[in-house]
């Protein structure tokens, strides 16, 4: 089957069953990302966008597209922020890709590590705590992304979350009866506006993981295949495999999950907006739902006591901000 637009050799088959050639696919992808930004009002005319990068295909694709738009319209400033969790044999190689990518495009990259910020790498935390690695990593990474994006003066924090990630999160929350958590999902995260929360936006929200990989491959963005050594232990991994099986048998399943969710999301946000009472963590002062935020709960278990220590750590790490320009 030839490309549906120009009858050239196809490189990608869409969920609709139509095939596209290289140039038509790249145009389709970039248009759809721009449309996602427009219809969900993810970004305004003037923004200082901090893009959270891991060095993987998703985050580098977002960074590439937003950087290209910023180059043309010049009212957006795009910088990159990476978190080094300290996972031996995994994160170093990804960060190397992120550094190379930013260096060749003249994008400023800031790297912060768990070790510098909290005193322990994720590998060390996993040995010390009886918790699932993904539970520690997810909480502390989100915490650092928000605080560091704010320190960098971000008006928005863009991430590389795609349709597959969102479908997995929706199903995980359903299976665990975490509907309140689902209310915080969507192309713009959060229920309540609060200046300490940098709003996270997901420009790849409507793109499948396979589409993102195809775009990254065709643009020469995707590098090596590396798998997190802790991925075997994740609930998300199980849900991902289940959804992929379903998608193969019933194409369009993930799209249907996300589109159905988008129909009920405004109701969920409205419902939980009236119920939600925003508090501030008595240890670090960050906004949270309880007395102590999840990040401080983990840090207390580690023996990283209180705000004083963490402030000192932060001061110490300031000199270690690495930039590429």
């Amino acid at each position: 089957m030839a490309c549906k637009n120009c009858f050239e050799k196809p490189v990608f088959k869409l969920i609709s069953g139509e095939s596209l050639c290289r140039s038509c696919f790249l145009r389709y992808f970039e248009r759809k990302v721009r449309k996602t930004v427009r219809i969900f009002k993810l970004l305004g005319k003037e923004e200082r966008i901090v893009v959270g990068v891991s060095g993987g295909k998703d985050s580098l694709t977002v960074l590439n597209i937003l950087h290209n738009i910023a180059e043309r319209q010049r009212k957006w400033e795009v910088i990159a922020l990476a978190i080094d969790e300290g996972i031996k044999g995994y994160r170093n190689s990804c960060l190397m890709d992120a550094r190379d990518f930013c260096k060749t495009r003249g994008i400023t990259l800031h790297v912060y590590s768990f070790k510098d910020e909290f005193g322990y790498s994720l590998d060390e935390m996993v040995k010390k705590l009886k918790m699932k690695p993904c539970s520690i990593c997810g909480v502390l990474r989100r915490h650092l992304l928000n605080t560091k994006a704010r320190e960098l003066g971000a008006t928005k924090l863009a991430t590389g979350h795609n349709m597959d990630d969102e479908a997995q999160s929706i199903i995980m929350n359903q299976f665990r009866r975490n509907i309140e958590t689902s209310a915080r999902l969507g192309p713009i995260t959060g229920v309540i506006k609060e200046k300490k929360f940098i709003r996270r936006v997901k420009p790849l929200y409507l793109m499948t993981e396979k589409e993102v990989m195809a775009y990254a491959f065709l643009k020469g963005i995707s590098g090596r295949f590396v798998e997190c050594p802790y991925a075997y232990d994740s609930y998300r991994g199980e849900v991902r495999d289940m959804l992929n099986e379903f998608e193969a048998r019933h194409p369009g399943t993930k799209n249907s999950i996300v589109q159905s969710f988008l129909e009920i999301l405004p109701l969920l946000k409205k419902h939980y907006k009236t119920q939600a009472k925003l508090k501030f963590c008595r240890v670090c002062g960050e906004p949270c739902s309880g007395e102590i935020c999840k990040a401080c709960e983990i840090l207390e278990k580690l023996g990283v006591t209180g705000r004083k220590n963490r402030k000192n750590k932060r001061k110490g790490s300031k000199g270690k901000i690495r930039k590429n320009l």
Binding site: M1, P10, F12, Y90, M213, A214, F225
Partner: peptide, 22 residues
């Protein structure tokens, strides 16, 4: 990059790339 309907020859070199994030 090719779609699933592409026909293969013995002289082809094929690479199967995983799209799932690491």
């Amino acid at each position: 990059l090719v779609t699933e309907s592409a026909k293969l020859k013995d002289s082809d070199e094929i690479k199967i790339i995983s799209v799932v994030s690491g």
